[in-house]
Structure formats: structure tokens, C-alpha cells
Write a protein that binds this DNA or RNA. Structure first.
Ligand SMILES: [Mn+2]
Ligand SMILES: [Mn+2]
Ligand SMILES: [Mn+2]
Ligand SMILES: [Mn+2]
Lengths: 229, 229
DNA sequence: TAAAAAATTTAGTCTTGTCTAAAAATATTT
DNA sequence: AAATATTTTTAGACAAGACTAAATTTTTTA
């Protein structure tokens, strides 16, 4: 039975591995865990003893298969609980993360599978992040920053990069939600701000916002040319 | 913010105080917490420092008002989560206790009040135990052991004393549930076994079972005599 | 490639919560 | 009221998980 702390470290390493190819460095983990590098070293050694990570002195750590599975199950629990809070208890999406940080450590396979069924097997959490299945598999969604689209391209908002309360509340205020269809009307060359049309409403967003909105890769808008078959 | 351990000790003391009038002795707490007397002494001193119990060396501990409120809130959480598991996730009543032991330590007032509303403000948990309200008040139900009833008396099952898995499963097997009407048909003088009628079905239970079934205090069955008034 | 900077590990300390063994206080018997 | 038994506290140790400061290794810069 792993401690809360061990589970949190595994989760942090998992998230770091998603971004980079190499192993998670001591300092990166320390930053993510808001702790000191020396504490991280202690923990990496312990997780290595338990064969949950492969760790080489001064070289950082990589999750083992076993470690990856545990990390995915913690993430599964986190996201299912967030979904429960929003869908069943009417929490808003900026209120659920801290509570899910606690709930993700409750140990009971039956509980989490029942919860999954109760929620009717959601594929993504309230922030658009995919929920791993029982075996830890997660469909890695292909997505790009809205800021990479060209004028007239449109796509669907699948998730967001920044999940801070401030950003979540900004989106609520602008009535931007996961699943919305977003069309790029015009891009201002001077400051890269974007005129967008979201679910019919047209308005302006800054480049910073556009970089934190991740949308489906838009299907190529083929030039209307007659095919000669 | 209290630790899980501190909360568990407060809850244990609360339960002990319900049974006795005096303070909880070190040994009683040790038994309930399945720990050593010396560990209990350490914790009682700590809880006394935090003004959560009134503790006198060699005399045991009593909850302070503050301590009592915290204990009641932990019990409230425990029982609401048990209710959630049974009513919403279709757990059986013998499966929920261990999971509730974990869930009762989740810190979020909004969460527990939302859960309360989601469950439509239940008054009792799946085992018939009363759920304290937000302020820690709990309606102390008046109840007696079924074994104290006389022949022909009847009452309603409100809760059970023993909550072991074995007993809960015995009740399931016999289809005995909280809220059932139980009538004492006959008491066998030799072994005090009781012929009962429960929701129409008539069968025999042992004295031990009858001592663990707590029923409403039955209204006096007045002798049928004409009033001269 | 040697020096400087940055990252990482080690050594030692602290807190929380647990334990065992021994000492002290209280309760029960003779 | 002693003597004995039981309960409770104290003393000292340990493991987990964190920290600071110092030492070591790796990376970057000159
Ligand atoms: Mn989250
Ligand atoms: Mn999320
Ligand atoms: Mn319970
Ligand atoms: Mn219960």
C-alpha cells in the first residue's frame, strides 16, 4: 500500500514524462511537487527500491511499467472525482481540483469502478482531460493550440493548457466551454490577438488566451477545386 | 488542520463517551484504536494542548466543546459517505465501513454539504445510525434491545448494535432491514430464543441476535379497560 | 579544457506517530 | 493497611517525510 506522498510523486513524474522524452530530473520533480531537491532524491531512491521507477544517480528517474500503472490509476481517480463533483454535485470546474487531490488517494477499486459506472463512463474530465481506463490506458488526444490556426479555420475546443482558477473563471465569464466550436475570423498581425467566433458569438481574445486553448487538429480545408477524377 | 490520526482519536473518544458517563480511559481508547496505551497518552497530551480534550493524568480524557464538534463532523462525514455508497453506488451495507473510514477525512465543508443535499438530507445512515447535522447535533434515538420486549409486543427496527460484516450478512440472509416491523410471537424460556414475525414472515432468532437488534421503545400496550370518565 | 555555475546528492536535524521496556500511580485483594 | 495487580505514564528508539547546509557531480561558459 503506497502512501499519499509516494502516489503524488509517481503522478508528478508521469506528468513530467508526458512533456519530455527523457526521465524526470530531480529539480523538475521538486518544482512540480513544491518541495526541495533533497526530498526528491530521498523519494526517488525509495521508489527505485520498490521498483516503481528506474533511477540513476544524477540522471533523474523514469517510471517502470508498474509505476506507470499506479500513476495512471491515481490520475483516473482524480479525474473521475472531478467529474463527479461537477456533474453530480454541481461544483464549478475551478473548485474541484483541490478536493480531487484528496479524493484521488482513497483506496478501493470497487469504489472507483462503481463511480465510473455511476457517471456513465465519461471519457474526459471537466477540463477536457482524458480519463484513463481500468488498465491505465488513456487515449492521447491529438490537439493543437488555437493560436496555430490560420484565418477561417475552425475546430473544437478539447482541453486547456493552463488550469488555474483565474483562467477557468475567465473562460466562464466569456462563456467558453469544452466542446465549443471555435472559428478564427481574423488575426491581428500587430499583437497576434484573434477575432474568434465561438458558438455564434464573435469577440476578441489575446494571443496568451489562444495559446492555452487546445483544439482538435482541424481537417485540412481543401481549396475548392474541381476534381478531374 | 487536524491529521487523520487526531480525527480518529477524537471520534473514538466521542464513541466511548456515548457509552459511559466518565471520561475515556487511556486503556479504553487504546482498545478502540487498536494501539498501545503509551501511544494514547502521547496523543491525549497533544489533544489537550490543542484544547480538544480535557485531560488529567491518570484520569482519562473528556472532549471539550470544540473537540466534540470536530468528532461529530467526522462522524457526519462517515455516515453521509456510507449513505452515498449504499444509495447511489449500490454497495451493500457490509461493504461501506472501511471505505467511509477513509472518506471521513476529506476536508471540504462545501463537499459534505453538497453531498448531504445530493442525498436529500438523510437522517440516518444505512445501519440506522443518526447523521449529525452541520452543527454537530444529533437526535439521540431512544431504543431498546429486541430481547427486552415481552410476548406480543411489537416495534420497529431502528439500528443494530453489532456492525460486523458477519452480522450484517446474517441480516441480509434473513431479509431483516432497518425500518422493518418486528413482533415478538413467543419467547422460549429454556434458551431465550424468540419466535418473531418480521414484515409478515415468521421465524426464530437466538437471544444473541435479539440483543443486537435495537428497536423503538414500544408504546405501552394498555390493558383494554373501560375508562370511567 | 579549465573555471564557474547549476544540479544533485549526502549528512544531519526535526516532527509526527508509533513501539517496547521500565517506572510510577491507582485499584483491588488479602 | 499492606501486598498485589492493574492501569497509566515516562523514557528512549524507530520509520516516514520533510528541511538546511555542505559536499559532490554534471553542465555551461570562457
Ligand atoms: Mn485536477
Ligand atoms: Mn482535471
Ligand atoms: Mn461505519
Ligand atoms: Mn454506519
Amino acid at each position: 500500500m503506497l502512501s499519499f506522498s509516494e502516489e503524488n510523486y509517481l503522478k508528478a513524474i508521469y506528468h513530467i514524462e508526458q512533456l519530455q522524452t527523457e526521465g524526470a530530473s530531480t529539480n523538475t520533480v521538486a518544482k512540480k511537487m513544491q518541495t526541495k531537491a533533497s526530498s526528491v532524491t530521498d523519494m526517488l531512491q525509495k521508489l527505485a527500491d520498490k521498483r516503481l521507477v528506474v533511477y540513476k544517480k544524477y540522471q533523474g528517474a523514469l517510471l517502470s511499467a508498474k509505476g506507470k500503472k499506479i500513476a495512471a490509476s491515481v490520475i483516473r481517480k482524480h479525474r473521475l472525482w472531478e467529474t463527479f463533483l461537477v456533474n453530480k454535485l454541481n461544483f464549478s470546474w475551478d473548485e474541484v481540483h483541490d478536493i480531487a487531490e484528496q479524493l484521488e488517494h482513497i483506496k478501493s477499486e470497487k469504489l472507483i469502478d462503481s463511480l465510473d459506472a455511476f457517471l456513465e463512463f465519461p471519457r474526459v474530465d471537466p477540463h477536457g482531460d482524458p480519463i484513463p481506463d481500468k488498465d491505465g490506458n488513456m487515449t492521447k488526444q491529438k490537439k493543437v493550440m488555437l493560436s496555430t490556426l490560420k484565418e477561417n479555420q475552425q475546430s473544437k475546443l478539447v482541453t486547456i493548457k493552463d488550469s488555474s482558477d483565474n483562467f477557468l473563471r475567465y473562460l466562464d465569464k466569456k462563456q467558453i466551454a469544452i466542446g465549443n466550436t471555435i472559428k478564427v475570423i481574423a488575426i491581428e498581425p500587430f499583437d497576434k490577438s484573434i477575432q474568434v467566433q465561438i458558438e455564434g458569438r464573435e469577440f476578441m481574445i489575446t494571443e496568451e488566451v489562444a495559446e492555452n486553448l487546445l483544439v482538435e487538429i482541424p481537417s485540412l480545408t481543401l481549396p475548392k477545386v474541381k476534381r478531374t477524377n
